[in-house]
Amino acid sequence: MKKLFSFAALSLSAILITGCGTDDSSTGSGSDSGLDVVDEGKFTFAASGEFKPFSFTSGDGTMTGFDIDVAEAVAEELGLDPEQKKFKFAGIVEGVQSGRFDAAVASHTITEERAEKVDFSTPYYYSGPQIFVRPDSDVETLADLEGMEIAVSKGSTYAETAGEATENIKTYDSDVVALEALSKGKHDAVITDFVTGKEAIGAGLEIEARELLGRSEQAIAVAQDNDELLEAINEALETLREDGTLEEISQEYFGEDITADPEGEE
C-alpha cells in the first residue's frame, strides 16, 4: 500500500512540474523572445504626448493617439506588454541612444543626423512639412518668408527648413502650441507636419495651409546595437501593414491612410 502511495505521489509531482514548465514558456517575456529590452516582458517606448493627434495626454495622464496605437500594436506582435513613457520630444532620441527606452514611437522623421545616433525601422507613415499662416497673410511660399519670424517645434527637422528663409526662428515644445500661438497673432508662420496643421484647422484654429515643402518618412527609432529588436519591429510593422491594422489606425485618426507609401506600386 505504501509503495502504491509513493508511486502516485511521484506521478503527481511530475505532472505539477511539467505544468509549471509549460506555463513559464508561454509568458512571452523579453528574455523568452530573445529580445534585448529595458524591462523583461515589456516594450518600453517614448512619445511626447504633445503632438495631437499623433500623441496626446488624456485626463488620467496616459498618452493616446496614432503613434501610441501603433506602438501598442507593435508590442502585441512582439509578445510584449506596452510600456509608454512621456518625454520631451527634443530628448527622446538621446533617451533611446542611452538605453532609457527600447524605442521611440514619436513621429521621428528619418534624417542622416538622427541616423548617426539611432537606427530606424521601415517607415510606418509618410508625411511632409507645410507652411501655416493666419488667413490675412500674403505668404504663399518659403521664399516669401525671407527674414520673417517662423515658429517650429524644438528638436524637429522643421528648424532646418525654416533656416533656408530666415534666422528668426522661435521654438516650442509642441507643434500644436506653436500653431495656437500663430492663431493668436504671434509669428509670421509655423512650419510643421501637414497632417498636424490639418487637424489643428479642423479643431477650429484660424490658420491656413500654404506651400507644401516636401515629403518625409516617419519611423520607429531603436538603439544602434539592438539589431534583433529592430528586425523584430520591422517584421511586426510588415505584419500590421499586410493585415490592414496600420491603415485601420490611420483611418481612425485621420479619415485617410497615411501609412501607404505614396511612391509605392499601385
Rank of each mutant, 00 (worst) to 15 (best):
K2M: 00
K3E: 00
F7Y: 01
A8C: 14
L10G: 14
C20F: 15
D23R: 09
D32Y: 03
G41H: 04
F45M: 10
A46K: 03
E50H: 02
P53M: 10
P53I: 04
F56R: 06
D67Y: 04
D67F: 05
D67C: 10
I68C: 11
D69M: 07
A73L: 11
V74T: 01
A75P: 07
G79R: 09
G79D: 07
L80T: 00
E83F: 12
Q84S: 05
K86H: 03
K86L: 13
K86W: 03
F89E: 05
I92F: 08
V93F: 13
V96P: 04
G99R: 02
G99F: 01
D102F: 10
A106T: 00
S107W: 01
H108V: 01
K117H: 04
D119C: 10
F120H: 14
S121R: 05
Y124M: 13
S127H: 10
G128I: 03
Q130A: 08
D136F: 09
S137P: 05
D138Y: 00
T141P: 06
E149D: 11
V152Y: 02
S153P: 03
S153A: 15
A162S: 15
I169N: 07
I169V: 06
I169H: 05
T171Q: 12
Y172L: 06
D175P: 03
V176Y: 09
A181D: 13
D188K: 04
T192C: 13
F194P: 05
T196M: 07
K198F: 12
K198G: 15
I201R: 15
A209Q: 13
R210F: 09
V222W: 01
Q224M: 08
L229Q: 09
L230I: 01
A232F: 12
I233C: 15
E235A: 15
A236Y: 08
L237P: 00
T239A: 14
G244M: 12
E252Y: 11
F254V: 05
G264Y: 02
E266Y: 02
